[in-house]
């Protein structure tokens, strides 16, 4: 970027600063860094870990606009028109703002977001029911074949008709990550997914119990499983729950998009 730096005779005002300091270049750098960070999340697909897909175009658009603004600042050079009206009052000194923005952009460029894992699920209270503070389903999709339902589809169905016996024998095929709930017996684990409505800030976990023939230690927490089997009712920790009885359990790599919506 510095190669393109437009050079020209300095105005007297600029002379009392360090010779290399040009506010518009700092602005361009900040904008370009943020633009790059947006592009990085877009192109590496890590945006899936941060946002609901419906709003990704906004983030991608922001990356493009920021790039445009950076180019504008870079090419603006000396023909900058001056304007000092409008009563714009700043809370932070401009240099401090730039510094904060630049630092965070550098972190964004180096840090790779991680999908939430079982710790967070337990901390946020994983459940097989959507509590009242959760978003309420706005539509009720007609029953799909039971083996096509995802974890959240099952939870929504259960929410409408909670009696576990109603689903006995239905075929299941779904994937999710493993949680070992502390209070459950050794042969039960929970297969779980985080659900997003907007962005990772509102991710909440849902999950279904899986009845194993062996100890759950065979499946480490946070590993991803694809499970095929059928639904049964099991009494876990004194509570009757809809439970998966697997016929096939397969470890899979973490999917590119680990959330459900």
């Amino acid at each position: 970027m510095s190669a393109k730096r437009p050079r020209g005779p300095k105005t007297p005002k600029q002379r009392d600063r360090a010779p290399w300091y040009r506010p518009e270049l700092l602005d361009a750098l900040v904008l370009a860094a943020w633009s790059l960070a947006f592009f990085r999340y877009w192109l590496t697909g890590k945006l899936f870990l941060l946002l609901h897909p419906d709003y990704m175009w906004l983030a991608n658009g922001a990356g493009i606009v920021l790039l445009g603004l950076a180019v504008f600042k870079l090419t603006q050079g000396k023909r900058r028109p001056s304007y000092s009206g409008g009563g714009h009052t700043t809370l932070l000194p401009p240099q401090l703002s730039s510094l904060i923005l630049l630092t965070i952009a550098v972190v964004a460029l180096t840090y790779t977001p991680q999908a939430f894992a079982s710790d967070t699920a337990i901390q946020r209270g994983v459940s097989d029911s959507l509590t009242l503070t959760r978003s309420q389903p706005q539509r009720f999709v007609r029953q799909t074949a039971s083996e096509e339902r995802t974890v959240i589809d099952w939870i929504r169905t259960l929410n409408v008709y909670p009696e576990p016996d109603a689903y006995t024998g239905q075929a299941v095929k779904l994937s999710g990550f493993v949680i070992h709930p502390q209070e459950w017996p050794e042969e039960y684990l929970m297969v779980s997914r985080f659900v997003l409505t907007c962005c990772a800030a509102d991710a909440y976990p849902v999950g279904l119990p899986v009845q194993l023939a062996v100890s759950r230690q065979a499946y480490a927490p946070d590993s991803w499983l694809e499970i095929e089997g059928k639904m049964v009712t099991a009494t876990i920790n004194g509570q009757r729950q809809l439970t998966i009885e697997p016929t096939k359990l397969e470890t899979i790599p973490e999917p590119r998009n680990p959330y459900e919506y």
Binding site: F38, Y55, C199, A200
Partner: peptide, 22 residues
């Protein structure tokens, strides 16, 4: 783990909010 979660949350808020700020 917590630090990483915190950073992910932080950036998720930022990438969602910055387009609207723009």
């Amino acid at each position: 783990e917590k630090f990483s979660n915190g950073l992910t949350l932080f950036f998720s808020l930022l990438v969602e909010a910055i387009p609207f700020l723009l």
